[in-house]
Simulated assay, not measured.
Amino acid sequence: MQREPIEDQVAWRLARRASQLASIKAKKARDAAAAELMAQAARAAELRQTLESNNAKLAETQQAQAELIRNACPR
């Protein structure tokens, strides 16, 4: 007669452990996704900085080119 409550206890413990494992797995997945998002945000910031630097260099070069053209063709 005691067998049924023991089986119920075992089933309950297994279900609880399965739930714990699922929670752990979900947390790891969330942490991994958060880390990936942070890495992507850092990469995007790096790319924006590179773009701003390149744009500044381009503007400087274009300005120098325009100055050369003005000096080469005096009016």
Rank of each mutant, 00 (worst) to 15 (best):
P5A: 11
M38P: 01
Q2K: 11
I69D: 07
S23Q: 13
R13Y: 14
Q49M: 05
L51S: 08
E7C: 12
I24T: 07
R17F: 11
A33T: 02
S53H: 11
E52Q: 00
Q9A: 07
E36C: 01
R13G: 06
R48N: 10
L51D: 01
I6Q: 09
L37A: 05
A56R: 15
L21H: 08
R70T: 04
R75Y: 00
A45V: 01
L21T: 06
K27G: 03
D8M: 15
E60L: 03
K28I: 02
E7Q: 14
M1Q: 14
Q63V: 00
K57S: 08
M1E: 15
R75N: 08
A11P: 03
A64T: 06
E46H: 01
Q63I: 02
N71Q: 15
R70S: 05
Q65E: 15
S23W: 11
E7D: 14
E4R: 13
A15I: 09
L47G: 03
A44Y: 02
T61A: 14
T61K: 12
P5R: 15
E36I: 00
S53D: 07
L14H: 15
A26E: 04
K25C: 04
N71S: 15
D31M: 05
V10R: 01
R30F: 08
E52A: 04
W12G: 03
L14M: 15
L47T: 02
N55Q: 15
T50R: 09
W12V: 08
A32E: 10
A29D: 07
K27R: 12
E46K: 05
A33P: 02
A22K: 09
Q2E: 12
A42G: 07
E46W: 00
L21Q: 12
T61H: 11
N71H: 13
A29Y: 06
S19C: 14
A44M: 07
R16Q: 14
A18H: 05
E46A: 02
K27I: 00
T61L: 13
E52D: 00
A64I: 02
Q65R: 12
I69E: 10
N71F: 13
D31F: 04
D31Y: 04
A59I: 01
L14E: 15
L51N: 03
A35N: 10
S19N: 13
Q9E: 13
Q2A: 10
R70I: 07
N54A: 15
